[in-house]
Write a protein that binds this DNA or RNA. Structure first.
Lengths: 247, 247
DNA sequence: TCGAATTTGTGCGTATGTATC
DNA sequence: GGATACATACGCACAAATTCG
């Protein structure tokens, strides 16, 4: 069984892009042109180009044409233990390292733990927690989303119950937990990737379906997990850099 | 301007999937059914389902129907400094931690550095290097691909010039470099994600276009970078876990 | 500034082949 | 074998954005 025509066309174009015959910024043949060259209907040419768009090789500008994507310079988001211990949140440290001002908005509310979060925090689904939703900005652009969960069992009635209010606001989880005697000794970050959900795409100002890196972060003391966060980063603009010491 | 119909339909279905109203394995309405429900042509229903397929939420079985994808249990690939110093490669340590036998195939050849690799190794494009291409397997399944580059300037004429031959075969870069007096003190791993290229999809036994995590790893001594590797991992089967100590 | 041509995005209806049930 | 459902393909139509004379 031969490959479908539209895939064959896409293969030809993809090879031209990878080999550099169609450099970044180059204009692809219009779907009319493709249809003529391959002697097929213009829908088929369109399907081919659409496939390349889905694969991230091509960007279409309505009314103008389809172009080989410029791979934008990726910013680095550094998540190393060096910078983390200099105080503040990993995000602040990373933005400071890049010489860019980092700001954020957030909102906090009481919420019951989802099953997945409860599992990571060693609790039961439905247990009470404070949920804080962050949007991190750099240079006015949204950089990163985060949903952070802290068990109320730990923070209820303490000065740090509300992460972004009171004397310890904006200090980062590690310093805040230290205030109530919880010494965070290690973090676990599980990195994965998927297409952005519609709401995430809107908040991050990226196209729906664009790839995002996800980090499931869990902060732990020697005894127990004390915070869990789900972090979302658009992969087109940022790559995640881990600096790992080796002994 | 309202969103196009097919996207609206896809949004409805996606929400149902994410919320659990359509659990993994559930059958979606056929495109005929969708067309009837939304009072559009069946082509439009098809476009909606196709979008969800591209996003990885749905899997179509020809002649049967379209189904919510089973998210397979993700294996964890741990990359922590704890396990790394226990000798051997990060891959071996991760597989050992998961209680699964890890094996690999590789082939080594002399090759000039690409511009990107030369940049990471602090060398010039075209400088001679040993390039080793790995396919790592776990339980007979391909888990991870890697292309490793070591500057011949360092290893030429030493016992470790060929990574997988001689007395130091299979020991991992850190131990091998120690043999020639290069003490690797830290690693940098830049994590990103993209659709798999055709050749990678074939080698990893995944569908073309499926997402992969990419790691650009650079091993450094205090003085200089000594190895660079490009690692590719299918995101559907593995999530990357970093364990970071916090002080 | 205006208008025509081009190109993409979306949509309709139909047809054929093939896989599944 | 027949009904159903998906995969691909054809040809057409119109709206919106862009380009250019």
């Amino acid at each position: 069984m031969p490959a479908p025509t539209y895939q064959r066309i896409a293969d030809d174009l993809r090879r031209a892009i990878v080999d550099g015959d169609l450099p970044p910024g180059a204009k692809l043949p219009s779907r009319h042109e493709l249809a003529r060259q391959y002697e097929v209907s213009d829908r088929v040419g369109m399907e081919a180009v659409r496939l390349l768009i889905a694969e991230g090789f091509v960007e279409a500008r309505s009314g103008s044409g389809s172009y080989v994507r410029q791979r934008p310079e990726m910013q680095r988001l550094t998540r190393s233990w060096y910078t983390q211990r200099k105080g503040g949140s990993p995000f602040r440290a990373a933005m400071a390292a890049a010489g860019r001002p980092g700001t954020w908005e957030c909102s906090t509310e009481r919420a019951p733990m989802t099953p997945a979060i409860a599992d990571r925090l060693g609790a039961n689904a439905g247990d009470p927690a404070m949920r804080t939703i962050y949007t991190f900005m750099g240079d006015g652009e949204p950089v990163m989303l985060s949903i952070s969960w802290e068990p109320l069992e730990l923070t209820q009635g303490t000065a740090i119950m509300l992460p972004e209010e009171g004397p310890h606001a904006g200090k980062g989880v590690i310093d805040r937990m230290a205030v109530i005697g919880q010494q965070i000794t290690h973090a676990e970050e599980a990195v994965s990737a998927r297409p952005a959900l519609a709401t995430e795409a809107r908040r991050l100002n990226i196209r729906p379906g664009a790839l995002v890196l996800t980090i499931a972060r869990t902060y732990r003391t020697d005894d127990r997990p004390v915070e869990a966060a789900d972090i979302v980063i658009p992969v087109e603009r940022y790559s995640l850099v881990y600096e790992v010491p080796v002994r």
